[in-house]
Design a protein around this nucleic acid. Structure first.
Lengths: 153, 153
DNA sequence: TGTTGATAGTTAGATATCAAACTATATAGC
DNA sequence: GCTATATAGTTTGATATCTAACTATCAACA
């Protein structure tokens, strides 16, 4: 039962929590919305970005470019983002959030809000506060483990 | 930047760590193997189970039955598991790991082994030890948040 | 015994994700 | 200027995952 290295036990718990929280979030998001798409919308608005290239976004989220192409294509089809070719670089494109995308992000935030008190009943603020710095440190350490250190976007 | 509720920041870090660790694991697994399939093999062998129904497995991993059907179908096709109809229940099936499946599990364990010292350079054992109980508690609390409390298989 | 509701498994269709391979454009070096 | 390498984006084909809907079987109960 506990024959696993400590690290694997930790990763296992993290995997389960990730799965539970993702399911919880997805369940309350507006129909058709996904965590991945919300994350893109949220990234722009939280950081005040206007335009970003798909490659920038892929790096920021640590996903591959093909994955980003896929998600952005769907988001553009749904009218949540605009994509134009970068006038300064023929290879690149520039993505921006449409008003519809901003409205969708607001709807998602509103939908997620009620989860906070629910989570508070399950996990105390003190526990979360204690966990956060340890997780941040671990994330940074694992991040640095990968071959080419990548800077955030 | 830090306008998110504490819980969301924690979930965000957990999501990133999950992604990094999954990528790391998948990268060293034998070609064609996935974390999901390894998890099934490991579940049987670690717990000493002989036969389990797909529904049992789905419950144990907190995934839906269709997902389990999909993964088991591929595993059976690859010769890693055997699936037979349950003689005692016409609806159910019984899954067992084949010798080939056991060998594959051993190969995966061997492949994952070298990751341990690598991870140790990034995260100290003390940090992991401190994290584990907090994560276990959080996982249990989130688990209990879901509607019908489900007991482990 | 026969109907009703619960459970098991599957199929269909969707999204996110990856690796591999490909095209197009930029940049560096000679 | 030209070639070689690097970077951006896409396409293809695979897996895992979900929800919705469907079939089959079991179990409970009137």
């Amino acid at each position: 039962m506990t024959q696993d290295p400590l690290a694997f036990q930790v990763f296992n718990e993290i995997g389960i929590i990730e799965h539970l929280s993702r399911t919880m979030f997805t369940g309350v998001l507006p129909s058709g919305m996904t965590v991945a798409q919300f994350t893109v919308l949220n990234h722009f608005i939280r950081l005040g970005h206007h335009e970003r290239s798909p490659a920038d976004l892929a790096r920021a989220f640590q996903i591959t470019r093909p994955t980003m192409t896929s998600t952005l294509t769907r988001m553009a089809r749904a009218g949540l983002v605009d994509i134009r070719t970068d006038p300064a670089d023929g290879r690149a494109k520039l993505v921006s959030v449409t008003p519809k995308g901003e409205a969708m992000r607001a709807r998602c935030i509103a939908a997620i809000g009620p989860l906070v008190p629910l989570i508070d009943t399950a996990v105390s603020g003190a526990e979360l506060a204690a966990l956060l710095p340890a997780l941040q440190k671990m994330r940074a350490a694992l991040d640095a483990l990968r071959d080419p250190p990548i800077r955030d976007a």
